[in-house]
Design a protein around this nucleic acid. Structure first.
Lengths: 351, 351
DNA sequence: ATCACTGGTGGGAGCGCTCCCACAGTACCT
DNA sequence: AGGTACTGTGGGAGCGCTCCCACCAGTGAT
């Protein structure tokens, strides 16, 4: 191609100015073509595009960022150690959705881990420098200072899972309430009557909603809610087995358990085994997340699937809208800033 | 702190100019302090640092990138689909080393997947825009056009694993030759005499080196090399079991197998089982990589560990040297541009 | 005393864009 | 004919830095 010869002539990479000269137009016009402005005649556009191709012109991102005060990059912030990121399919699925949606755009995705204090300080510095146009926040705990920092810096952010019913940040979540209902209704439909619940960490809003769903599913089916059948867990395996042991002690006649996560269910399974209960014969078990662990458990675990990839997609949609809204002369975007996606029960042999 | 008030006064974020005014010095001096130049008196430095702290000044990366023609970012390019990235511990270990080493610097790490054609085209565009100062290339095949593209664009790059003995790019590799020797010598020391080898993909240089190590270990121990004990694999599980089947057919009396990867070994194990051979009683098995699969295989697999995290570290070292070398008035860095790290045999019950 | 230097400093020029104002041209009204 | 309202276009100004040259003291050699 001509690109190399032409590029060589001027020394470095071709600039807007050079493209303009070659196309016989002004700098502003080239800029308009590059940025897809409609206010350019077809003939001019064609001439500019030809010049761009001939010179192998690629816009200088730094110059653009400086002049336009934007970076065309967004960050996916994972406030966890990398280990968890690689261990849990949640993150890779999310990343897949995010990447897919983002590849439609010119935006660049940055993956940032902020598990340690040190990494968090680095991140704060990074955000203060406004090196990204927006932030995707996954797996945020109720007391995390990150969201506040972001709004202080006026950086658009979208959160996966609201921190409370009054969440101010845009968020994308799955229907924790509905998912819990599905799980419990499923167990009831299989003839189970004493359905226990091992909760997640109570400072996670989604865990609260799952409890609500559990309660309402029982009430609406005409069963009372036995508080002694609810035991607190923390999403971990140990928490699950500890909670299960407590439940068995209190209500040895329980015949089903809805655990707030698959990992919790794995812990519960362990405790049930040790107590000599068979799954599902004596006790039916349902988890949440439909992660790899659900499929590989023995017996395979019935679980509530969240559409994580889709959640990633929607988060990007929301974030891009937020980002666009802060740009000059943007029309206000959609007002549905809290998205909730449906869950799906995946029945397996544990129930 | 005073930072917010001060920042609010001028409207946006403070600039170099404002810091200079506040400290009662010139713009150049502030720049020197920010960039750690030694040619600043202690008193001035202190004054500037105070002003920076008071105003909460954070340099504008875009302006810096534009003026200095650098980005302070490097990319880790993974020419594989994301799925493999998450599935293989190789990548997460590498990422850990890279991240650790990079956190000592101001450099930003970008993770870029280039598994599909589409992603590759996007990457090419990205590199053409010189959006990174350097590139880390992992898992590159012999015929990959990426290295050439990079040298064409004059972007520093470091490769993990040379493509041939005459590799021109700086590279960091583990001692494939030595690792293979360790494996074979281990098997010989356990009294095995008919040691087979299932190779990796022959277009991967490291696989070639492992074959060399296998041959030399046998020769040096005074055993001949029986070509019929070498069978080509491709690093995959299917390849492993196919190769194993072929070997068993040809040399039913073999008593040990050195496989070019753990995954290959898993395939070989399957074929051995199906042929009714016990591991390690009838046939000893050694893999390569010491990945998670090695620990979880039944029986646990003896394997050759590569110091992957360390490799990540060293790749960053090399790359940063390369990057620094292209900057004005840099002293030429080290000339050891091909690093080879030692491997370690991890004995388990499969041998 | 004059003449190099040398460590320390100020500030102009310029990096390559975007934004926006000015203006030419055409079209359609009064 | 003059106004008004567009569409399309050129180019100045300016984004916030780095680079580098000019300059100013002090210091020691001549």
């Amino acid at each position: 191609m001509a690109s190399h010869g032409a590029r060589g002539r001027s020394g470095g990479r071709p600039t807007l100015e050079e493209v303009a000269a070659r196309a016989g137009v002004g700098r502003g016009t080239v800029s308009r073509v590059i940025n897809g402005s409609p206010r350019v005649s077809d003939a001019t556009r064609a001439a500019v595009e030809a010049a761009v191709a001939e010179l192998g012109y690629v816009p200088n991102t730094a110059a653009r960022a400086l002049a336009a005060n934007r970076t065309d990059a967004i960050a996916l912030v994972v406030p966890e150690p990398e280990t968890r990121f690689f261990a849990e399919p949640y993150f890779s699925d999310m990343l897949k959705g995010v990447g897919a949606e983002l590849s439609e755009t010119e935006m660049q995705l940055l993956l940032i881990f902020a598990g340690s204090d040190r990494e968090r300080r680095r991140l704060a510095q990074y955000l203060a420098a406004h090196r990204v146009d927006g932030v995707l926040l996954v797996s945020v705990h109720a007391d995390d200072p990150l969201p506040d920092l972001l709004s202080q810096l006026d950086i658009p952010a979208v959160i996966s899972g609201p921190r409370s019913a009054g969440e101010t940040l845009p968020s994308v979540d799955s229907d924790n309430y509905g998912g819990a209902r599905q799980a419990v209704e499923h167990l009831l439909s299989r003839g189970r009557r004493r359905v226990a619940h091992i909760t997640g960490r109570l400072d996670v809003y989604g865990a609260q909603r799952r409890i609500d769903g559990y309660r309402d599913a029982l009430s609406d089916a005409g069963h009372g809610v036995d508080e002694a059948l609810i035991e607190q867990g923390d999403f971990s395996e140990e928490g699950g087995s500890r909670a299960m042991a407590a439940l068995l002690e209190r209500r040895p006649d329980l015949d089903a358990v809805f655990a707030a996560s698959d990992v919790t269910a794995a812990g519960a399974r362990q405790a049930l085994r040790e107590a000599g209960r068979r799954i599902p014969d004596d006790v039916a078990l349902v988890g949440y997340d439909d992660s790899a662990i659900a499929r590989h458990l023995d017996p395979p675990l019935t679980s509530v699937r969240q559409p994580i990839e889709e959640m990633g997609r929607r988060m990007i949609d929301l974030l891009l809208t937020e980002v666009a809204d802060r740009r000059p002369l943007a029309s206000r975007g959609l007002d549905r800033r809290q998205v909730v996606l449906a869950t799906e029960l995946v029945p397996r042999s544990s129930s």
